[in-house]
Design a protein around this nucleic acid. Structure first.
Lengths: 343, 343
DNA sequence: ACATTTATTTTACGCGCGTAAAGTTTTTTT
DNA sequence: AAAAAAACTTTACGCGCGTAAAATAAATGT
């Protein structure tokens, strides 16, 4: 990098001995100019401190190179992880990703969509809040901006959805638990905000019936995104009052399970498959912390890699196609069972 | 919100019956125009779908309303939390915050600073990587862009630093542990990337000496930001080989402690202050997950509220002052001891 | 009611770059 | 070496808005 600051493209063009339109062409695609020309430009670039004004660029381009990445709750390491992978992939493809978090609130999600409109992004990767989303608002947005949904599906919204196959999660955990011990009851929130939770419940009921077993659902109260605390309080109550129908428990997701384990420890209940343990606990998501819980959580893992790469690829395809796909696509990736000490 | 889309400010000015320069003034500060004029504009705004083009605005303004928020590792819920608070406060003040994560890598941190330069932000709130930061690069950046550091201090970089008082953390945990049992050894990484770790070590040694006790430091190997795994591996080795000098352990931070607890559970070592426990463990940071560990972690909590509000206030003051403060400011907030079951 | 202050309108220019058109040079093709 | 194709230069316009200056209008003070 050079040090002498250059104000604008005209000045840089003069300094490099190349005309401004060619310089402009170079910055849009370095390979679109002759090799000898590119060489001259890059030599000049090394000697002077010039970078094109991004605002002037975006004002004049019909489409920016911005990509919005929206997650419902960034303080959840699961979403932080996937946002990071999406971000990296967009960046590698020459786009400028920006990460936004709805922080679990409808108003924030809407405000983010407004912000996104104003930055005129080439496309958006959106993991919606789910039940708390303003569906009409999302739909209007997706009608104007090329959008791919991930994690939580909302029927008919966005040009595509990429996520995990909840039936695959549940069938693997149930199969494993019922093979190695009692079949589990399902521990979940009564009114889950996330549509995946509903799909998991349905899959649980269906799978249990198929195995000729009696589905038993334990629903706990609580709202918001503090799942650990909700799981903990719910479990404390259940365990104290001895309301658990089985000694095998399947949590709808790992964050609830983390709270559940916390309650077990407080009450002196040993969890695991070892002798001396009175409870087995499994869960879903393979949350980044699930291997550090006590005991480590047996869980079904998302295929992070596939979800993120396919989501990004789909978005690029959507952008190339001018914002419309022939029909709405839905892609689900299977889970992978991770056996640890808790079940 | 109206529905008829309006292309530009000229068109909107005509529709609202107000001249364009006044409309421009209104969007820069709605209170800078007469109440009756504001009324007319807002009526028109309700009837039409117009929003100023942010790229045209920022091209012409000397200073944008953008604020960059940079954290070293967003997948760490601690940073996710503080980023969220900073973000909200900037937004409330009428700025447009953008959150970036260095993901623990020098190259990313530098790339983020480059990106920030190109969006010409009014100011930046930066939590640097620490030892891995390219100091010269940071310094150059801070010379051009009004920047306030938080969390990790780097001497002489940025116009101000706002963080937590590491001595306050350590003195409280040591005082508590040595009052209620044996004085603790310090469990930490051998080459911590974060400068706070070094400050905590110094504070530990000083505090122990002051109490007439023998400081004992247990340093474990490991690099990167996977602190839980590093703590876990380190603890497994120490516990198996019986190398721990005391049965009271003070972890440099909660994430190491989470790994430590995981190792204890695996080896069947009971942690806590109850009868039957053979080890006490305390830590620092009050990580969002520290109350869900088994047992729940006794830790020293950051004053998140004060740090974030003071950081933002300082940045605004810096911006108002034109990017320079009389002298570099350093503000530290005291910790608050959170007693839980682990010690 | 008049002078004074404050707000608005009119006019006009500039920001930095995308991009189109026409002409010129360089490279590739045969 | 001539013809064709590709890349480049020159010229010029437009994007949507900030902002300055001068003229005009409205609100405020006495």
């Amino acid at each position: 990098m050079g040090d002498k600051p250059v104000k604008n493209m005209d000045e840089f063009a003069a300094l490099s001995g190349i005309s401004r339109p060619t310089i402009s062409k170079y910055f849009n695609d370095p390979n679109s100019v002759r090799a000898s020309t590119r060489q001259k430009i890059e030599t000049a670039l090394a000697g002077y401190d010039y970078r094109p004004n991004i605002y002037a660029i975006n004002q004049n381009r019909r489409l920016t190179k911005n990509i919005g990445i929206v997650v419902p709750y960034l303080a959840d390491p699961f979403f932080a992880e996937i946002a990071r992978m999406l971000e990296r992939r967009c960046f590698e493809a020459g786009f400028t990703p920006s990460v936004f978090s709805s922080h679990g609130e409808t108003s924030n999600e809407k405000a983010i969509l407004d912000t996104l409109r104003s930055i005129k992004p080439a496309g958006v990767l959106l993991a919606p809040l789910g039940r708390l989303s303003d569906i009409t608002y999302l739909k209007d947005f997706c009608a104007d901006v090329p959008t791919v949904l991930f994690d939580s599906n909302i029927e008919g919204v966005g040009a595509a959805f990429i996520g995990s196959d909840n039936r695959s999660f549940v069938s693997q955990t149930i199969e494993y638990m019922s093979r190695t011990g009692d079949a589990p009851c399902l521990f979940e929130m009564r009114n889950p905000a996330n549509p995946n939770a509903n799909k998991r419940r349905h899959a649980y009921v269906e799978m249990m019936k198929r195995l000729g077993l009696d589905p038993q659902i334990v629903a706990i109260d609580g709202t918001g995104w503090a799942f650990e605390e909700i799981g903990r309080q719910g479990a404390l109550k259940l365990l104290r009052d001895n309301l658990l129908p089985t000694n095998s428990v399947l949590c709808s997701n790992d964050r609830l399970a983390i709270g559940f384990l916390s309650a077990c420890h407080e009450l002196g209940i040993k969890v695991g498959r070892d002798a001396g343990c009175t409870l087995r606990l499994a869960s879903h998501d393979d949350h980044p912390y699930s291997r550090f819980t006590c005991p480590a959580l047996t869980t079904a893992a998302h295929d992070y890699e596939s979800v993120s790469s396919h989501a990004v690829e789909t978005l690029f395809r959507l952008i190339d196609a001018g914002g419309k796909l022939k029909r709405r696509e839905e892609t689900l990736f299977a889970a992978r069972l991770i056996m640890r000490a808790s079940a």
